[in-house]
């Protein structure tokens, strides 16, 4: 378990709270991610994990609390501005631009960093052409990294499920993020695909120098690769720490993992 992340925090969430009407979706959530960190967010269904992603990316604004990316305060910023600042995500229920080609899905996200605008496009200036070419090359590289370059010109919605998940990650990386939020990256994958995805996530974290925060129900995966784990239940953080501490935390066992035997078997399943 690597704990050698001592650099400046890239993502700081402080005391985030959000209520939908009378329902406290998230209460007093705090988290710090340092560069190169790989952290996990776990909890039973409806615990508020995806809501936290929505708060971090600006889909929701928190009732209370603050979010910083590096030194930049993100509160009040729109999702697109946060993407520009360096926040990228994937979705639990895949949300690709299904009608666009695989390559165009990635190129669209590359637009975040593009300089030349409409005038350049209309006049087809050399600068614009060069930039378009660079975007296409970078997008192909990303598809290569994720192992789906061979399908670049297919419609995104025609990809098999596992490849769609990979494409979502490629698209998120195209925005050149500092923080990558992965919402259930191995959901619905078979053991072999899970293995591949696990090494891919670890690879991405190193190659792209991003801090990764992942939501995952696969305990084996989370326990194995995450440096730090936060456990949520009913919007409240009930435990936070390294895998070993979480596994032995009585509150977690009671609220989430159920009886200790179940925990052991679930862990074993995931690793297998």
């Amino acid at each position: 378990m690597s704990t050698a992340v001592t650099s400046e925090p890239v993502l700081t969430a402080q005391h985030l709270s959000l209520a939908f009407g009378g329902l406290k979706a998230v209460a007093d959530f705090s988290l710090t991610l340092r560069a190169g960190a790989l952290a996990g967010l776990i909890g039973p269904n409806g615990a508020g994990k995806t809501t936290i992603f929505n708060l971090l990316t600006g889909v929701y604004q928190p009732d209370q609390g603050e979010i910083f990316l590096g030194k930049q305060r993100l509160n009040g910023l729109k999702p697109s501005a946060r993407a520009k600042a360096g926040m990228a995500r994937t979705f639990q229920n895949i949300r690709l631009f299904g009608e666009l080609s695989v390559l165009d899905n990635v190129r669209t996200a590359c637009g975040v960093r593009a300089k030349s605008g409409l005038v350049g496009a209309l006049l087809r200036t050399p600068g614009w052409r060069a930039e378009e070419r660079a975007i296409t090359e970078r997008s192909m590289d990303l598809l290569q990294t994720l192992g789906i370059a061979g399908r670049a010109h297919e419609q995104a919605k025609s990809l098999p499920y596992g490849d769609q998940r990979r494409l979502e990650i490629a698209r998120a990386l195209a925005t050149e993020p500092k923080v990558l939020l992965l919402d259930e990256p191995v959901a619905g994958m078979n053991t072999q695909e899970k293995h591949a995805m696990r090494s891919m996530i670890q690879q991405i974290r190193v190659d792209f120098e991003v801090a990764v925060l992942l939501i995952e129900h696969d305990m084996g995966l989370v326990m194995e690769i995450c440096d730090h784990i936060t456990v949520l239940d009913h919007g409240t953080t009930i435990a936070a720490g390294v895998a070993a501490d979480i596994q032995n935390d009585p509150a977690v066992i009671e609220a989430y993992l159920g009886a200790p035997d179940d925990a052991a078997s679930e862990g074993a399943d995931g690793v297998a």
């Binding site: 990316t57 600006g58 889909v59 729109k78 999702p79 697109s80 993407a83 520009k84 990228a88 995500r89 979705f91 949300r95 690709l96 631009f97 669209t108 996200a109 637009g111 975040v112 698209r171 998120a172 195209a174 925005t175």
Partner: peptide
């Protein structure tokens, strides 16, 4: 919404 999350100024 997804476009916005990918940095497109909607």
């Amino acid at each position: 919404r997804t476009a916005s999350l990918m940095g497109i100024n909607v």
